[in-house]
């Protein structure tokens, strides 16, 4: 079974965004970069499938050369067999649709039975690329899966929905986007990290893939800091009941969270 896992390197989830005022660009220097945590579920699922049925896993990413360490440690060292890095200055500022086009070009170079994504990347929180790729490749997709069973040429996946799940049957090849709960990703062992350096890692450009990234469909106008989290506003009332009623009102009418 040939499996592709499309991954992204993102700033660590705890990264502090230093943005005092609206700005056209986000200064991302000095950020610690890690594998997108949702992609780790995709990688783990691919490795489990490989362990159960055999096969080959290719990790594919779009990003600068600095993604090598992440690919090595979090993909190759835990069981992926090879990695492809699509690195091209043309992709600076590429939007989801452009990334999806470029990934499609890379995916078409081989016949994958299964293409896995994380549900979203924790930097742009967009969560579209997997679905866009499926559509562009003319493949069926199941998004937000929390359970996967493979049959012969088919799969059954649990898709998380509000307050429940859909059980979806789908033929292979297919595209899946993986949600937390699907599995517990393993950690790489040190010898495997060391050995991962020997696994093939290919760096390609858009020209190599024969694709010209399309112009962005979405333009970024500006980044802005979130409304300041002020000091805690203490809600009071004549008694507990009054305070509770006031709190419920504030949450409903002002914070608009209930």
């Amino acid at each position: 079974m040939k499996i592709a896992v499309c991954v992204k390197q993102v700033p660590d989830s705890e990264t502090r965004i230093n943005l005092a005022a609206p700005a056209a660009k986000l200064d991302q220097t000095g950020f610690t970069r890690v594998l997108n945590p949702y992609d780790a579920y995709a990688v783990e699922e691919a490795v489990r499938i490989k362990e159960a049925r055999g096969g080959e896993i290719t990790a594919i990413t779009v990003g600068p050369e600095t993604v090598r360490e992440t690919l090595k440690k979090d993909c190759l060292a835990v069981g992926c067999d090879k990695a492809i890095i699509i690195n091209d200055p043309l992709l600076a500022g590429a939007d989801d649709a452009a990334i999806a086009d470029v990934l499609c070009a890379a995916l078409k170079k081989d016949n994958y039975d299964l293409i896995l994504f994380g549900i979203k990347a924790i930097d742009d929180d967009s969560g579209q690329v997997g679905i866009l790729v499926a559509e562009k490749l003319g493949l069926p997709h199941v998004s937000t899966i929390t359970k996967l069973e493979l049959g012969e040429g088919t799969l059954t996946a649990h898709r998380e929905i509000e307050g429940g799940k859909e059980i979806v049957d789908c033929p292979l090849p297919a595209v899946l986007t993986c949600q937390k709960g699907l599995n517990e990703p393993r950690l790489p062992s040190l010898p495997n990290i060391m050995k991962a350096g020997m696994k093939p890692m290919q760096i390609v450009t858009c020209a190599d893939l024969g694709v010209t990234p399309p112009a962005a469909l979405v333009e970024i106008r500006q980044y802005s800091p979130p409304p300041a989290r002020g000091t805690c506003r203490l809600v009071t009332g004549d008694d507990a009941a009054a305070a509770a009623r006031e709190l419920a009102r504030v949450l409903n009418e002002e914070a608009k969270v209930i």
Partner: peptide, 13 residues
């Protein structure tokens, strides 16, 4: 590994 503290609070903090 990522933030040089075991509570995983941003190293910038």
């Amino acid at each position: 590994e990522n933030n040089s503290n075991p509570w995983n609070v941003s190293s910038a903090a």
